[in-house]
Write a protein that binds this DNA or RNA. Structure first.
Lengths: 238, 238
DNA sequence: CTCGTCAGATTGTCAGATAATCTATTCGCC
DNA sequence: GGCGAATAGATTATCTGACAATCTGACGAG
């Protein structure tokens, strides 16, 4: 057989022979990175990639389909392959299978959000003093709140408010994590009464005011209470 | 040139009809969820899935290969398909293409870590008073630190310390986020001098002591300083 | 009882073919 | 000549069939 010395470099682990498609997928990712390709940039066709890598078109397909599933590449019939955009929403869709998040109790989600959102407040307050547009953005959302009439609008605005708050920290990783939590939060954001949303508006307003006044701890207290108000609605969970 | 993305604004049922493989992938995920399958549980064979879904085996393959790429399923030659473990490390491997993290400055990664890790301290301190094993676990790592001699060992122990700290909060989502940040942190954890590690040991010890004493703010200050000590080593970063 | 061998099952890979879809050129009509 | 429709080529989407590689389990020799 082919038990040659190539095995020497291998480790002792069960030696799961590297699959061709994984190799191809890696090469494609390297290609994208090396060529500094961005969203929408074209990639070689499946056939060309097959020839270039010296494998069948099927192996290339399995690799590109896997990458497409992740969102790294996009394939359009009759056009070709292009670089896609890997966004957190799509990722969260698959991440539903991540045990850490799947098994996470609702209470853990709430507590995690409290930690992250209150954690950025000091930073946000500081940036507010140098960039007036931060307070304006938040205030604009609250104003929209007052004129909104449907539940769905309220939910969307609430999501936007909290996301804008995280964005105001200027920390992209935190925003990404917030997006991720958001997906799992969705499930118990639906059952909400009108009266509660009225209180939420004033709660948001209060947070903005306190932040502008530099009173971080007061803002944090209010935000904590605001987020934890969801706690009461989570008894029937699955 | 490249391409207006008219598709972006469109809803689901527009021109691009749902691909079969995406449908199959969705069905497989539903199957796993419905049957409450966990790590290692067997799935029907490719052929059987093909018959059951009424599609060719190749379409099933493209779906399973995409799911395998994500880690949701595992395929072993000659054995069959099984449910896999979707872990954050594997995910982070692909997430290198996530703009939010790719573009994130090193400074943002550091600040994000500070927020998350200091954010859990109050919770950890409280849980410490009821569960002695928490302090023991952290203390054990520090003891290992004192006998460690290689750089790699130090790095591994440092990672373990911070991960254990997050785990002690009991918040699985936070731990997952920490793992994610860890991957991107790795790149400037290598260049470290011996003297700095000696200081790190005492820093870790100090944090444990302060937490046990219930002095959260002192622990937070030390932790912040400890993490931000990486800041000095990140000038050459790309 | 232990070990090797073998048959069956299952995934991995390939080749070829057809359908669907998009792009760009060409053709026809005015 | 200009403009829109028809057409041809390119590319992905899917299917069929086949063979190779590998694992599992049973069976039998010693």
């Amino acid at each position: 057989m082919s038990a040659y010395k190539k095995d020497v470099v291998m480790k002792l682990e069960t030696v799961p022979r590297r699959k061709i498609r994984d190799e191809v997928a890696e090469r494609i990712k390297e290609y994208i990175a090396a060529e500094r390709l961005g969203l929408g940039d074209r990639l070689p066709t499946e056939g060309e990639l097959a020839v270039r890598f010296g494998v069948s078109r099927l192996s290339v397909r399995e690799a590109t389909k896997a990458l497409e599933f992740l969102g790294i590449v996009e394939a359009k019939t009759g056009v070709g392959l292009a670089v896609g955009q890997l966004d957190m929403a799509r990722m969260a869709d698959h991440l539903g299978f991540l045990p850490a998040l799947q098994q996470a109790e609702s209470q853990q989600l709430i507590d995690s959000r409290v930690i992250v959102e209150t954690g950025v407040l000091a930073r946000v307050a500081e940036r507010m003093t140098q960039d007036p547009s931060i307070a304006e953005s938040l205030q604009a959302i609250v104003e929209e709140f007052r004129t909104a009439r449907t539940i769905q609008t309220w939910i969307d605005l609430d999501i936007r408010f909290h996301r804008t708050l995280l964005e105001s920290s200027g920390l992209a990783p935190i925003v990404a994590f917030g997006d991720l939590l958001q997906v799992f939060f969705q499930r118990f954001r639906d059952s909400v009464k009108k009266a509660e949303w009225k209180a939420a508006i004033e709660s948001h307003q209060f947070i903005i005011d306190r932040l502008q006044a530099g009173d971080v701890s007061a803002a944090a207290s209010e935000l904590r209470e605001h987020i934890e108000s969801h706690r009461q609605r989570i008894g029937a969970g699955r």
